[in-house]
C-alpha cells in the first residue's frame, strides 16, 4: 500500500509533568475518513494540534503531504467578513503579499476558485453574507470550504460537530466523508459521537491516555470496543 498522506510516529507531549501523548502512532491515507474517538483528555486534540504545528511535540515525527488544513470546534471564521472572503483567506499562503493585504486585492481566479469551494459545500448562494450571520452548521461548512481553497491534501478536524445540532452534525460529517472519497483527501476527525463515526468513517482509531488502543475498519468496530474507550480510569 502506498505511503499515507499523514504519518505520525512516536509522538510524545506532556504538559507540566502530565503525559498527554505517549508514543502515539497514526496514519491517515488519501481517500479515507479516519475518526478519532476517546474520552476527554486522552490526547486526541493535542495530537491534531501537534500535527498542524500549533503545538510543539516533545518527541516523535510528523510527516504531512503538503500543508494540512485544520477545522475547529469553535469554527474560527472572521465573523465580520463575508463567507467568500473567509474562504479566500485559506489561499493566503500561496498569494504574494501585494495581492493579499485586503480582500479587495484578491485575484479574480482566486474568487472564482473560492466560489467553487463554497458551491462544493452547498453554500454558493450565501457567499456575500457575513460569516457571523450564518448558522453554526453553515459556518462549519464555510470553514471546510476554506480548507478546500487552501488545496490541502490533509484535513484535520478537531471536534468539528460538537457545537452543532444532530442534523447539522450529520451533514458536516457526511461532507467530510464525501470529500475524502471523491476528492481523495486524507481526513482525520476527532468525534465525540461514536454513532456518527461508525456511520461515516472508513476507519476508527480509539485512544486511551495518549496511546492508540483501537485501530480497525469502522464496520468491524462493535459497541463493546467503543464502550471500552470511555471507561473511567479506575476500572480500566
Amino acid at each position: 500500500m502506498s505511503e499515507a498522506a499523514l504519518v505520525i510516529r512516536g509522538l510524545r507531549k506532556s504538559y507540566s509533568g502530565r503525559q498527554v501523548l505517549d508514543s502515539l502512532d497514526l496514519d491517515v491515507r488519501s481517500g479515507e475518513l479516519v475518526a478519532l474517538l476517546g474520552a476527554n483528555g486522552c490526547g486526541k486534540s493535542t495530537a491534531l494540534r501537534c500535527a498542524v504545528g500549533l503545538e510543539t511535540p516533545d518527541g516523535g515525527t510528523v510527516r504531512v503531504d503538503g500543508r494540512p488544513a485544520m477545522v475547529f470546534q469553535q469554527i474560527h471564521l472572521v465573523r465580520r467578513r463575508s463567507a467568500i472572503d473567509n474562504v479566500c483567506a485559506g489561499a493566503l499562503g500561496r498569494l504574494p503579499l501585494r495581492r493579499s493585504l485586503t480582500p479587495a486585492l484578491f485575484p479574480r481566479e482566486l474568487r472564482e476558485e473560492a466560489m467553487a469551494c463554497l458551491d462544493r459545500v452547498g453554500l454558493a448562494d450565501r457567499a456575500a453574507e457575513r460569516a457571523g450571520r450564518l448558522s453554526g452548521g453553515q459556518q462549519q461548512r464555510v470553514a471546510i470550504a476554506r480548507a478546500l481553497c487552501q488545496r490541502a491534501n490533509v484535513v484535520l478536524a478537531d471536534e468539528p460537530v460538537s457545537a452543532l445540532d444532530p442534523s447539522a452534525a450529520e451533514q458536516v460529517v457526511a461532507l467530510l466523508a464525501d470529500l475524502a472519497h471523491q476528492r481523495g483527501l486524507a481526513v482525520g476527525a476527532v468525534l465525540h459521537q461514536p454513532a456518527l463515526a461508525r456511520r461515516h468513517a472508513d476507519r476508527i482509531v480509539g485512544m486511551v491516555a495518549g496511546r492508540v488502543v483501537l485501530d480497525s475498519p469502522a464496520v468491524a468496530v462493535g459497541d463493546a470496543d467503543v464502550d471500552a474507550l470511555y471507561l473511567p480510569a479506575v476500572t480500566r
Partner: peptide, 14 residues
C-alpha cells in the same frame, strides 16, 4: 481565527 490562518500557511502580516 489567527491560528486557523497560520496553520494554512499565512504570514504574520497576512
Amino acid at each position: 481565527p489567527r491560528d486557523a490562518l497560520r496553520v494554512s500557511g499565512a504570514s504574520g502580516i497576512q
